[in-house]
Design a protein around this nucleic acid. Structure first.
Lengths: 243, 243
DNA sequence: TTCTTAATAGTCACTCTGACTATAAATAGA
DNA sequence: TCTATTTATAGTCAGAGTGACTATTAAGAA
């Protein structure tokens, strides 16, 4: 806020609309997927876009993001409440929406693999889409999605975020899958294991018999997310940080 | 944007105002300072706040941030154009401004030590203030400032941002000062030197005689910022990441 | 000169990591 | 049942990076 001068009166201009856009990721079948909705209106009618919506007068952007997430995915209010929703950044180019001046606060979140989003209720036609197949999107959503992917990739390096992609109990192989899928690289299994187990609070062992896999091979031990939020030392990507 | 439903019409409600707030840091006399302006209007009249202002209809938030920075500091348009301005996050609590619904996009930037901001022109009374002395601030600016300090601290670990605090040519001692001042810790000089020189593209040596210091001791060699933008491996804070 | 100060050079042990090899525990199929 | 195959887990080893040091160099001050 400019404190002393009054060169500019915001009420003299057409107002801004404020929206949230959501980049919601999940890992299914070893591929990174993102939640998209099909637009029913112009512009970009019939095209795909990130879910989102208007911030209402009485709510913060973060609250609006949670509300929209719950509406789009059919997740319970309670589940969404406990989720880690991360504010990505705000997109404010004047021409990003041809209809009016829309400033959008983007959020990103990670979900474990879920059933297809419910199409009913007030949710638009929504679908999990492989990340590489998610283009072109409406508005500047390609850019938002790319930024979200970057952010998630780098957050995996120094936070425990990856467990957010996993169910409550998971194997180290599944956790490694998350890293490999998001980063798009292969990791050495023994080294990954050593690193994860050496990081205090990242995962904790679950007592009891291993899960029935149905597959071949020795069944893996189960773990659940630990108490730590950040990893140190970090678990860096093979090629170092991205440019 | 909600694509298919029309349960909510943003035009039916009082509009949002969109502003930018700036957390501009510098290092002077081995202390971290932040640029503050004194408010001339209610609310918080006479109190200190981060500089900032309204985003105009035809400009993006990033452009508004540059414009405000130039107005507040008196820096030339050209200088501000080349600066690294980083978007921090967006603050959107409904009650953050008692007058109306204001959503603010916060930016942060690092400057080398500069003369006191010009008080003339349309700039408010502005002053460099030691970071610890910058509280309480108007609105939610204490929170924004804390977030900005966190962000800058952690960016120093894996980017070349620190050179932004330094003049065009600087000594490794001055660069180390930046790290020590922002992080609030002391670093081992030979180790810091080794680390910086081992990171390709962080700094490059300047040919020619060392700067006249006037002080005692062996004069230090001069360096300038290198071409790299990120550091790897990172230069981590002694106590690891902050919680 | 000699003392003090600050920059720079070098040492050493310890940790972490990437690239491996080896072993264990399950299933599928002969 | 036996064997091959698959996957999890254990362990090894050399090289890079780091923290905590000590030593040397180059300047001004006493």
């Amino acid at each position: 806020m400019r404190p002393t001068t009054q060169e500019y009166d915001p009420r003299a201009f057409p107002p801004f609309a404020v929206t949230v856009d959501l980049a919601i990721f999940t890992v299914r079948a070893s591929r990174l997927h993102v939640l998209l909705v099909q637009r029913g209106e112009e512009p970009y009618r019939g095209g795909w876009a990130l879910p989102g919506g208007f911030v209402r007068p009485e709510e913060s952007a973060g609250l609006a993001a949670r509300r929209e997430l719950s509406e789009e995915t059919g997740l319970s209010h309670r589940t969404v409440q406990g989720l880690h929703l991360e504010q990505l950044r705000t997109y404010s180019e004047p021409d990003r929406d041809p209809r009016m001046r829309v400033v959008s606060v983007a959020y990103t979140a990670l979900l474990p693999d879920l059933p297809e989003p419910r199409g009913g209720g007030d949710a638009a036609l929504a679908r999990w889409t492989p990340r590489e197949a998610a283009a072109p999107l409406a508005f500047d959503h390609d850019r938002i999605l790319a930024d979200a992917h970057d952010r998630v990739s780098s957050k995996l390096e120094y936070t425990c975020l990856a467990t957010g992609f996993c169910p409550a109990e998971f194997t180290l192989g599944e956790l490694q899958q998350v890293y490999e899928t998001v980063w798009g690289v292969e990791l050495d299994r023994p080294n990954f294991r050593r690193k994860v187990l050496a990081t205090p609070g990242f995962v904790e062992a679950v007592e009891g018999p291993p899960r029935r896999t149905g597959g071949r091979g020795k069944p893996a031990a189960l773990y659940r997310a630990g108490a730590a939020a950040t990893l140190h030392p970090p678990l860096l990507r093979p090629e170092g940080r991205q440019p």
